[in-house]
């Protein structure tokens, strides 16, 4: 696990994401997904830049079917940006770093 990125699962999603004391970005991924691996470094860079204001988490959809199901995720990578437990933005597929930065700035 990359530094600054919390691995979350179905059991702690509510406490770690919905009840978090700051905004959260969750990266839904799976080991079989090439683009998910490819955006990894970008997500780590964002965690490095915004880590003190936003919590960064990742959720393996293979091991945790409940949470992705709740958010209707049928494609990965999907990034969901949460503020106060609500979805602020949901981005599916690979996106430019600037687009992710915009989504993060909306949380702040």
């Amino acid at each position: 696990m990359a530094e600054g990125i919390l691995e979350i699962d179905d059991s702690n999603f509510d406490t770690e994401v919905l009840q978090a004391d700051k905004p959260v970005m969750v990266d839904f991924w799976a080991p079989w997904c090439g683009p998910c691996k490819a955006i990894g470094p970008m997500v780590e860079e964002l965690a490095g830049a915004f880590g003190d204001q936003v919590k960064f988490a990742k959720c393996n959809v293979d091991e945790n079917p409940v949470t992705p199901g709740k958010y209707g995720i049928r494609a990965i990578p999907t990034l969901i940006f949460f503020k106060d437990g609500n979805v602020s933005e949901q981005i599916t597929g690979m996106a430019a770093k600037s687009k992710l930065e915009d989504a993060i700035n909306k949380l702040l």
């Binding site: 799976a30 079989w32 997904c33 090439g34 683009p35 049928r74 494609a75 990578p77």
Partner: peptide, 8 residues
């Protein structure tokens, strides 16, 4: 993207 979404 079949490799991203196929397993769903």
């Amino acid at each position: 993207c079949a490799t991203c979404d196929g397993p769903f």
